[in-house]
């Protein structure tokens, strides 16, 4: 059977999407987590903070948490196939160039994130009620770009991990960094000067800022979307290069 590259990539996408839908309960759990994050923790914190609408400030962070978790499944699958299921050698024999294979796995992570976060994103769109088309479509693009960064980081974590606990530790540490050293919970001016560089290279910082601008103003400063896109593409290139290097014969 002689398949075109696009068909082969489609099969990789399709397989990864099946993995996502195989565990439907986890999808429900992710939505519940989002809802509790937003409507319990978010509402509670917003009652304690005055001067600006803190609820609207942190809301994008709640859906980006889900996006990050799902995007990380790309690396998790690659790790499981490598360390536990012994499937990696078989995948390397597939008639797909390795660069396309790893790109397709990361792209599948992006699509999975958009699908898994869709209910939460719709809830946010109802809350913010954006009036412009870019305010409605833009958040999905932001989630896609952020998910690309998450998928890339997870692939890199999978490449360097040989044991499950090492992968779990890397995953938790990366998610800790993405969540707490970003502007998801606090404005940039509240972050100490020593931590600002780390915050500025965090893709979540640019993702939440772009999301807020899009749903509240209907447009986004070029700087925010460019910083997010460049960080994500850079991380994806790095992850692909690392994958190619480690799977070289």
């Amino acid at each position: 059977m002689n398949l075109s590259y696009s068909s082969k990539i489609f099969f990789i996408f399709e397989r990864d999407l099946r993995i996502l839908f195989h565990d439907k309960i986890s999808l429900v759990l992710m939505f519940m987590n989002f809802a509790i994050d937003l409507f319990v923790s978010g509402v509670t914190f917003s009652q304690m903070i005055t001067g600006f609408n803190y609820f609207l400030f942190i809301a994008p962070g709640a859906t980006l948490v889900t996006a990050g978790t799902v995007a990380f499944q790309s690396g998790r699958e690659i790790f499981l196939e490598k360390a536990l299921r012994d499937l990696s050698p078989y995948h390397l024999t597939l008639p797909v160039p390795r660069y396309l294979y790893v790109a397709a796995r990361m792209a599948a992570g992006v699509i999975k994130s958009i699908v898994a976060t869709a209910p939460g994103t719709i809830v946010l769109l109802v809350i913010y009620s954006p009036t412009t088309p870019s305010g409605i479509v833009g958040p999905f693009l932001v989630i896609a770009l952020f998910a690309l960064a998450g998928a890339a980081l997870s692939v890199m974590a999978a490449i360097v991990s040989k044991r499950t606990e090492v992968f779990i530790t890397l995953r938790s540490t990366i998610q800790l960094y993405l969540t707490f050293l970003s502007t998801a919970f606090y404005p940039l001016e509240f972050i100490p000067a020593a931590l600002v560089p780390l915050t500025l290279v965090n893709p979540k910082t640019w993702a939440v800022q772009a999301f807020r601008h899009l749903v509240q103003e209907g447009s986004v400063p070029l700087q925010d979307i460019l910083a997010l896109a460049l960080t994500s593409v850079f991380l994806a290139t790095l992850a692909a290069a690392a994958y190619l290097r480690t799977t070289r014969i």
Binding site: M48, E165, S172, T173, F180, Y186, F190
Partner: peptide, 29 residues
């Protein structure tokens, strides 16, 4: 499971010394 201890310990420290410190500047009750 030293790695798990490390990651949970780190999570605790970040929550206290980053999240709690910064949030306490925002919370005004």
């Amino acid at each position: 499971t030293p790695w798990i201890i490390f990651s949970r310990g780190l999570a605790f420290l970040v929550q206290i010394f980053v999240f709690a410190v910064l949030m306490s500047r925002l919370v005004n009750v």
